[in-house]
Design a protein around this nucleic acid. Structure first.
Ligand SMILES: [Mn+2]
Ligand SMILES: [Mn+2]
Ligand SMILES: [Mn+2]
Ligand SMILES: [Mn+2]
Lengths: 227, 227
DNA sequence: TAAATTTTTTAGACAAAACTAAAAAATACT
DNA sequence: AGTATTTTTTAGTTTTGTCTAAAAAATTTA
């Protein structure tokens, strides 16, 4: 039957889009995307990834040399940024307009990002007031793929005594976000490190100049602070 | 890759959903859905429809006897009404919130109706103020599949001199709706027949107690009036 | 550097959903 | 009733995207 997406606007299948986006996200962290990393991220097998890499390379979406990691081409990058834009705009919509919590939006946005209508995204962007960041603090690219980057560091690397704001989270799993809800950490929260525990690397954190909480090294790695 | 829809909520593939909805719409007009009618509606070939009917019959979605038309089972009807509900709620969203015109929404809603999240639809419904009709005047089923039916007749069958309101349109093609925009006909417009032209069956229509327009028999068949 | 391990690719299958061409059933027309 | 036409189904392919098992290349380790 085909999905109803019109090919005049959209050149890639739903599966191809997910690969493009996965490769984009992996390359954000490590230059090149490895076959196994892509498979992990998409919950597929490496063999399936190899097949798709060949196909996407043929379509000039990525730079591929066998047995080497891949990177996105100019064209692939454009496609990826548009998908990221759509994903994050939908997340804003779900939180701002439909009262979703930030731990409930990812899965739905993972579907909505594939809706193919330039007009829809243009209008949605305007309806939301042209937001610059999504509910997890991640920047939203504009139509040209440009986005602002606020300088930020992991909470664990903040100096003792310095005060900063929570700007983003790296882990967007529901379990992590629900943990943050529970301890009272949110995007925009004012934080400062009171003490670093040598024994296990955990941190004593002053939150909003009110309560003091203890967060593990693992948690601290996944919270970005800045400003 | 699979679409990202979760199987706990959704039992049918995107293609299956489109077949279910097509069969529902055809059965609204003619008791049984014929293979060729389904193929026409979905722009597929009758051979493809036969394959799918067998599959959907196995899944207990429809009542199927070879060489006979099909009807939806209880379960198929439930699925169809949920799809119709989602389609129409999204159409309302596009028109009411994103300033789409009623001739621009169908294609996008055709994609959005497949997004799989009960929470999303529940919240969207509330956000829109629990609308009872979509931008084309079609009723929106509630979560249980119930909907209100306003009694209505084709404009062509209205008595001369009686005044009514445009309640819905049957043809939702962009070209038809754009024609209606041009002549000033919209859902809720006040209409009465001034005269019926014997020669070609066209109608002289008084619109909103202001201007008089002439509409063809074809057009009159696709406009429903009532109240 | 040679062996062991890990990563990636190839080969071969499979399911979903479409297609064309041909056969079979149902319906319409003398 | 018997033929012609239309409708529907079957048979056999194709494309997309997945999989497992096995081979090949790259990397790590001894
Ligand atoms: Mn996705
Ligand atoms: Mn996000
Ligand atoms: Mn659809
Ligand atoms: Mn509609």
């Amino acid at each position: 039957m085909k999905d109803h997406r019109v090919t005049t606007e959209n050149q890639y299948t739903l599966a191809e889009e997910d690969y493009i986006k996965a490769i984009y996200h992996i390359c954000q962290q490590s230059q090149e995307a490895q076959t196994n990393d892509i498979a992990d991220r998409l919950h597929t097998k490496p063999a399936s990834v190899s097949d798709m890499l060949k196909k996407l390379a043929d379509k000039k979406v990525l730079n591929y040399i066998k047995y080497r990691g891949v990177t996105l081409t100019e064209e692939g990058m454009k496609a990826a940024l548009n998908l990221v834009r759509k994903h994050r705009l939908w997340e804003v919509f779900l939180v701002e307009k439909l009262n979703f919590s930030w731990d409930e939006v990812h899965e739905v946005a993972e579907q909505l990002e594939h809706i193919d209508s330039a007009l829809l995204i243009e209008r949605l962007d305007a309806f939301l007031g042209f937001p610059k960041f999504d509910p997890h603090g991640d920047p939203i690219p504009n139509e040209k793929g440009e986005f602002v980057v606020k300088p930020h560091i992991p909470l664990g690397e903040m100096e003792i005594g310095v005060t900063g704001k929570v700007l983003a989270v790296q882990d967007i799993s529901a379990s992590f976000l629900q943990y943050l809800n529970k301890v009272g950490i949110y995007i925009g929260a004012k934080v400062s490190i009171l003490d670093k525990i040598d024994y296990d690397g955990s941190l004593e954190v002053k939150l909003d100049e009110q309560k003091t909480i203890l967060v593990s090294k693992e948690v601290a790695k996944n919270i970005f602070v800045g400003e």
